[in-house]
Design a protein around this nucleic acid. Structure first.
Length: 824
DNA sequence: GATTAGGTTTTG
């Protein structure tokens, strides 16, 4: 900014007399002017707000010879520019005519065009730099009677600008071509410059200490109190504010506007506000501000050093370096005042019972309670020091996820929003970031049932009420995702998404838009058919048989003990059974030891075992049999008689195929409740119903591979297959659905069931996956979403047909590749 | 085209 301060009192003396001879008469008297130095704009820099604060635009037609023009401005387009008349001694005079631009206000050109007389250096400058068609803003003028009104039919007044208090601001004409709308600099004397700004009006901002009743002003200030817009009894919404500035005056401001988006976007005390065209009014002995015609408002964050980003819904608004400076100056000033509130925004973790506070949070779910109350479930990523009250609402009334009513981690706050706020709350979408103003932390003493002691059982649960009314600024508003406070909040919330990176995305994404906004899903479909995704509720309602693609979360699963999910089933008779436990198997082995007769036709190796003192077993003979000692595949198959389960396992770890047998003269297999074959750590079972055991001869030499299938076939055993069977309860935003995971469980977990039965690591992998899909102690918001292919089919159960759903063609993704355990 | 509200705690 460039400003020239000239001596305070200027006496119009000799050269003023010369003007009496000029075309325009200036009145001829010697006057004292208010101190008002010349201010010229340089390089678009802002003017001194202290000075501009005193300026007030006046339409040309409203000027009268008696108008007090102190602090007034006039704006108009140059329609005539006269010659520069030299008065000697470097004194000049120039006459020009400007016309009011707003023709609606002044249809009569007689009253909208006015003569302007410029004197001295300003006249010379004007001559050099102002052209016809330019739009000017004049300040520091005086009004006199126009001596030429009869001749030129212009305004009865003229404007006189001279010397130190006069300012001329030049704007580009709006009729100029786009090429010439680029701002151009014009050099004024004394090395000063005027910037031509493209169709941008200059605003002058008034200090709150300089407000007189009944004027329209522009204001820059800091917000020290505010209410969110509320519906009036009239046609508009009303925002009630109290603002202050460097003058330390606090001024009330009432904003009426029928459009919510045109109300000031104030998020917290300390925000900076710029008001255009508010009128001053005396109310209860104090000046207050009220919206007037053409009102507009822009707000800014009040934090020193943060980016100066105007908050406005207006598509065109003036914002330049001047505004930047004004905001920064107010921020600096406010930082040293104690404006900032007694009840700041506090995290849930610092909330005290009975306190009123502002909460910045994310909306998880909402549900109407009754006509004057809505429940909001929110979190801010901090854990409240007091147990949080849970408010029960029918799950199907929630928008968001009904299971959010679980409050496992004491992170979800229940907020009851009453009366006038219900309407605002109704518009909110889960995932939105919010600020709730003047929230009331209401302690609810709840005594735990079943304990007589009254003292120790009083637990204070905190519920939160946004009471009706707007006292103390009560209300709520959505915060934009890019606001500094939301950015801070997101950082906190993100620390909770370690388990599942998609968590926040999920809540920012309505479930129905999954396909348009891809979300990291914990499972993926492997099917090659294409069907449109449906909700679980839609899947339930459709006919059979069907294949569905759904997105859902895992609500619960069974069995919780994963080894219980291991099953044996017969491909022939379809019978599914549990894998016998070791006690059962051991019992079969012990029973079989009684049948230790000879085995005709087999090569034998006998091992005599003495009675072990530790156990109850008598002394025994353990016999290894083979079809032949040396030849072919037969040597790979060992029949073991008289061993315990433990011994069989031990021997199986050293020999490839061990078949436990017994004999009452003829060798035969054990009861098929026990494995008929041990291969390493794997145990194979046969179907009691479908096997036709026959140990008559060695396995055929045509067998290329000696494995469970060929051994089973050679022994007449119908091999049972291992499988994993789980019941998964899925849930989406519509309903929950019980499904089975069976046919495609192995690809789902990336393990083979037989491994899961024999191998600790494989079991752990299944366990890990289930814990990822359904973390122990988690609530629904923490659980990942699954992309699933479901098939629906009908089964008959107790004479009744029932629809079953099975997860098919689906595999879990492995976000963290399985770590190979280090050697120990 | 004027009017609305004019900071100041529900009582759930």
């Amino acid at each position: 900014m460039f400003s020239v301060n000239l001596p305070g009192k200027i006496k119009f003396t000799c050269w003023l007399c010369l003007l009496l001879h000029a075309e325009e008469c200036l009145g001829g008297e010697t006057r004292n002017l208010e101190v008002m130095p010349i201010h010229l704009v340089k390089n678009g820099a802002s003017l001194d707000p202290q000075v501009l604060a005193q300026l007030q635009p006046v339409p040309i037609p409203l000027l009268t010879p008696t108008s007090d023009c102190t602090g007034k401005t006039v704006k108009g387009r140059v329609i005539h520019k006269g010659p520069l008349v030299s008065m000697g001694d470097d004194s000049y005079v120039l006459k020009t005519v400007i016309q009011e631009e707003d023709t609606q206000q002044s249809p009569s050109s007689e009253h909208s065009s006015i003569n302007v007389v410029l004197l001295g250096a300003l006249a010379k400058s004007y001559f050099e730099h102002v052209s016809q068609g330019d739009v000017l803003l004049l300040a520091g003028f005086t009004v006199g009677k126009s001596p030429t009104v009869n001749k030129d039919k212009f305004h009865v007044c003229n404007l006189q600008l001279c010397g130190d208090d006069a300012s001329v601001y030049v704007f580009l004409s709006s009729t100029l071509s786009p090429r010439s709308s680029i701002p151009s600099k014009r050099t004024f004397p004394h090395g000063t410059e005027v910037t031509k700004a493209a169709k941008v009006a200059k605003y002058t901002y008034v200090s709150l200490s300089n407000l007189k009743p009944g004027i329209v002003v522009n204001i820059y200030a800091v917000v020290c109190f505010f209410k969110q817009p509320f519906q009036t009894k009239g046609t508009d919404y009303c925002s009630t504010l109290k603002i202050t500035d460097q003058s330390n005056n606090k001024v009330g401001c009432t904003i009426f506007c029928d459009k919510l988006e045109e109300h000031p976007k104030i998020f917290k005390i300390g925000d900076i506000i710029r008001l255009h065209r508010v009128k001053t009014q005396l109310f209860n002995g104090a000046i207050s501000l009220l919206t007037s015609h053409g009102f507009s408002v822009v707000t800014f964050d009040g934090t020193v050093g943060s980016p100066v980003v105007p908050r406005t819904s207006s598509r065109s608004f003036k914002f330049d370096e001047e505004d930047q400076h004004a905001v920064e100056a107010l921020r600096m000033w406010a930082a040293n005042q104690s404006l900032v509130p007694t009840e700041p925004s506090v995290p849930l973790s610092s909330v005290q019972p009975k306190a009123y506070f502002d909460l910045t949070c994310q909306l998880l779910a909402k549900a109407p309670v009754d006509s004057s109350c809505t429940l909001l479930k929110v979190w801010d990523g901090t854990k409240c020091a007091y147990p949080l009250l849970n408010v029960f609402v029918e799950p199907n009334t929630f928008e968001g996820s009904p299971t959010l009513s679980q409050n496992v981690e004491n992170l979800t706050a229940n907020i009851l929003v009453y009366d006038n706020h219900v309407q605002v709350a109704r518009e909110l979408k889960p995932g939105t970031y919010l600020r709730l103003y003047n929230l009331h932390a209401v302690p609810v003493a709840s005594r735990l049932p079943g304990n007589g002691s009254e003292q120790s059982d009083e637990t204070e649960h905190l519920g939160f009420h946004l009471h009706g009314g707007t006292s103390y600024g009560r209300g709520l508003r959505v915060l934009p995702d890019d606001s500094p406070d939301v950015k801070d909040l997101k950082k906190i919330l993100e620390t909770f998404s370690d388990m599942n990176d998609s968590l926040l995305d999920v809540w920012n994404t309505p479930p129905e838009s999954f396909d348009s906004a891809p979300v990291e899903l914990a499972t993926e479909r492997t099917c090659d058919h294409t069907v449109d995704p449906v909700t679980l509720a839609e899947a339930k309602s459709k006919g059979l048989p069907q294949v569905f693609h759904v997105k859902a979360q895992l609500k619960s699963y069974q069995p919780q003990k994963l080894y219980q999910s291991l099953k044996l089933f017969c491909r022939k008779c379809k019978f599914i059974q549990d894998v016998p436990d070791d006690d059962t198997v051991q019992g079969v082995f012990l029973e079989a030891q009684k049948d230790d007769g000879p085995c005709e036709g087999y090569w034998s190796l006998e091992v005599h075992l003495p009675r072990e003192p530790r156990c109850e077993l008598p002394s025994r003979t353990l016999t290894l049999h083979m079809f032949s000692q040396l030849e072919g595949k037969a040597k790979e198959l060992i029949f073991l008689k008289g061993a315990t389960l433990e011994e069989t396992c031990l021997i199986a770890s050293a020999y490839r195929n061990i078949v436990p047998v017994r004999s009452q003269g003829t060798m035969t297999l054990l009861d098929l409740s026990a494995p008929f074959l041990f291969r390493g750590t794997r145990r194979y079972y046969g179907c009691k119903q479908c096997s036709k055991v026959n140990l008559k001869g060695p396995p055929g030499e045509e067998i290329e591979v000696m494995d469970e299938n060929s051994v089973a076939e050679a022994l007449g055993v119908q091999l049972l297959q291992y499988g994993l069977l789980m019941k998964l309860e899925l849930q989406d935003e519509t309903t929950s659905l019980e499904t089975l995971l069976w046919r495609d469980a192995e690809p789902f977990f990336h393990v083979s069931a037989v491994d899961a039965a024999a191998d600790q690591q494989a079991q752990e992998r299944v366990q890990e996956i289930m814990e990822r899909l359904c973390p122990p102690g988690s609530n629904m918001v923490e659980r990942p979403w699954l992309d699933l292919c479901l098939s629906a089919y009908s089964v008959e159960e107790d004479g009744q047909r029932r629809t079953c759903y099975q997860i098919c063609h689906t595999a879990t993704r492995c976000p963290n590749p399985h770590n190979t355990p280090s050697d120990t």
